[in-house]
Design a protein around this nucleic acid. Structure first.
Length: 622
DNA sequence: AAAAAAC
């Protein structure tokens, strides 16, 4: 019998208690009722766990409703009167609340509560003064106002307009406030009620749209409600997370983990991350201290499963982030193994959220296999590649690239648009190329670092930290950094080598223009990129960018096939193929003659550029 | 063709 318990164990004893918790429990638990008898004396509701004994809360000073925001629409009022503190909350009164967890049960991970590091700690001190505008929110709300959203499926729960109208619980609400999220983004407005309603979700949305919060909030809230968790029968060193979040790259997993830790701060919900390239022992130790939400890359998770250090038997929530990317990277066997061939409860008995930028057939199949009666949600592209990013294409011969880059960097330096607050991200094609360019930049007086798959994980993380902090304001990267990573203050993305796929281009330039800031994207184009001419010039036209005449000529000359994914139409990454009435597991070609389906039609005023009405498989959005 | 990902 294990003494290492997490919430699952604790909650097992509380099933009966929770059964009386009210209507909410009816919505949530796909898992059956627990058989364990209630045991009031030991149960600790998660929101009471992990709490400092007295009022010396390590929470950061939160000095009022969001004030660094000049939008009149959402000041502090949503939070009904600004900051509250624990002692003012009903239902939890200082020492009185301690009874639950104060004594008794040893071995619950709550013994580690003193060690819960304040995940908000670095946010405020260093950056707040320098960047007051919308720091942490990571979201440019203006750009989100007019985003078209499409949902389909049976009984779609209506979207919400504020966090306040969703019952996420006090602890989570506080964290939302600490994160300075004042208003849900479109994907959150729709996805959160869907997930809270216990439904499976297939969502086409980009990173930076608030996706992480969209799947984390319902998971955390659901775990905190915590009904019906059975105690795992296996003992020994196996841990039983309640939620699993899979993502394609290590850095993305780290990033999700960091965000999830903020959302779950002082909720008692424990988030652990596991990825390759790092010594496994530390991760094992973390796991042994208890895990409710496991964030992982597929390879390392398979390893952990094969070692029987993790069991998926208790999984109630499964989220797959960047699913199309994971398939691109060849993770399908691992993912299927994890989801279908281990001990994870089947669809219907768990809640599954599948996020993907695009919705090609492979993802449709995954959706059919992993989801049960799901709701399809497509969120249109945010203006990031249209409104906020200025795209430039310059004709640069291969041999001139370095000196041309140097010109740009010198100009930036002269401008003052370089340094801590104006980072430059340079994408190259190969790992070797990344190393040699980094070296060359350093030799020429531009502090640079690099991130790619040949570096050790430690080096990768160090590089990212150094870049983010502004110590080395230039980062040379391969596509490992193209998707999903949210690095604030990237002012300039240089496509030193253009990718061969327009979707990759869109992902790359999406690293700038984030958090409400404008960004610049410069691409070096030459005859080697002629296959991209057409799709690139189309994309630029669509996003109201100035297309150089020479590029248009190139585009006209280069026949079709430009970019293996010619970008064609569609505000969304995809549509709910079930609506086409041709759903069939063998994979009928739903995209054949598709046209925009109803619902939003031409009504999306303000939506940048507008897309053609041609059928489209893809639109790359993180 | 290159990139990513477990040991």
């Amino acid at each position: 019998m294990s003494t290492r318990t997490s919430w699952a164990d604790l909650a097992a004893n509380s099933a009966a208690e929770n059964a009386t918790a009210g209507s909410s429990s009816a919505n949530n638990g796909p898992v059956g009722t627990a058989s364990a008898p209630p045991s009031r004396s030991t149960y600790v509701p998660p929101h009471l766990r992990n709490r400092p004994a007295v009022s010396d809360a390590p929470a950061p000073a939160y000095s009022g409703p969001v004030s660094n925001n000049d939008r009149p629409g959402y000041g502090g009022s949503r939070w009904s009167g600004g900051p509250r503190n624990d002692s003012g909350r009903s239902g939890y009164s200082g020492g009185g609340g301690r009874g639950g967890w104060g004594g008794g049960r040893s071995g619950g991970w709550d013994r580690g509560r003193d060690r819960e590091v304040n995940p908000f700690a670095d946010d405020d001190v260093t950056t707040e003064e320098a960047f007051t505008e919308q720091e942490n929110s990571g979201i440019n709300f203006d750009a989100y106002e007019d985003i078209p959203v499409e949902t389909s499926g049976d009984n779609v729960p209506p979207p919400v307009n504020t966090f306040a109208e969703i019952d996420l619980g006090d602890a989570l609400n506080q964290n939302i406030r600490r994160c300075k999220y004042v208003k849900p983004t479109p994907v959150q407005r729709h996805a959160i009620p869907i997930s809270l309603g216990g439904r499976d979700l297939m969502a086409c949305a980009q990173t930076g749209s608030g996706k992480t919060a969209a799947f984390c909030f319902p998971i955390i809230s659901g775990i905190m409600r915590g009904e019906s968790v059975q105690r795992p029968p296996r003992g020994a060193r196996t841990v039983y997370p309640l939620a699993l979040i899979l993502s394609p790259t290590r850095e993305l997993s780290m990033q999700i983990h960091e965000e999830a830790r903020k959302f779950s701060y002082q909720t008692g919900v424990k988030v652990v991350v596991a990825y390759g390239g790092a010594p496994i022992h530390q991760q094992l130790r973390e796991l042994e201290r208890g895990v409710d939400i496991l964030v992982a890359t597929p390879g390392r998770l398979v390893d952990l499963l094969e070692r029987a250090r993790v069991s998926l038997q208790m999984i109630r929530y499964l989220a797959l982030d960047e699913a199309d990317r994971m398939l691109d990277m060849g993770f399908e066997p691992q993912i299927r193994k994890i989801v279908e061939q281990m001990d994870m409860p089947p669809p219907g008995e768990r809640q599954t959220m599948l996020f993907s930028a695009t919705f090609p057939k492979e993802i449709q199949r995954l959706a059919s296999d992993f989801l049960a009666n799901y709701i399809f949600l497509a969120v249109g592209r945010v203006g990031s590649s249209t409104d906020l990013i200025v795209q430039r294409v310059e004709f640069v011969h291969e041999s001139d690239k370095r000196s041309h880059l140097m010109d740009l960097l010198h100009a930036q330096r002269a401008n003052g648009t370089q340094g801590k607050q104006a980072l430059t991200l340079v994408f190259v094609e190969t790992k070797k190329g990344a190393d040699s360019l980094e070296h060359w930049l350093c030799m020429n007086g531009f502090p640079a670092t690099t991130i790619h798959g040949d570096r050790t994980q430690q080096e990768r993380e160090q590089a990212l930290r150094s870049f983010k902090s502004g110590n080395t304001p230039i980062l040379v990267a391969t596509d490992v950094a193209a998707r999903g990573l949210d690095i604030p203050h990237v002012a300039h993305v240089v496509n030193f080598d253009l990718p061969n796929d327009i979707d990759d281009y869109v992902h790359r330039i999406g690293r700038t223009g984030r958090a409400g800031k404008t960004g610049l994207a410069t691409a070096f184009f030459n005859e080697n990129n002629s296959s991209m001419a057409r799709s690139l010039s189309e994309l630029m036209q669509e996003s109201n960018q100035e297309v150089p005449a020479w590029l248009s000529r190139y585009a006209a000359r280069s026949s079709f096939g430009g970019g293996r994914n010619r970008r064609s139409g569609g505000r969304f990454g995809g549509r709910d193929f079930r609506r086409e009435g041709s759903f069939n597991r063998g994979g009928s070609d739903y995209y054949g003659g598709g046209n925009s389906s109803g619902g939003y039609g031409a009504s999306s005023g303000g939506y940048g550029g507008g897309y053609g009405a041609s059928s489209g498989v893809t639109s790359a959005w993180d």
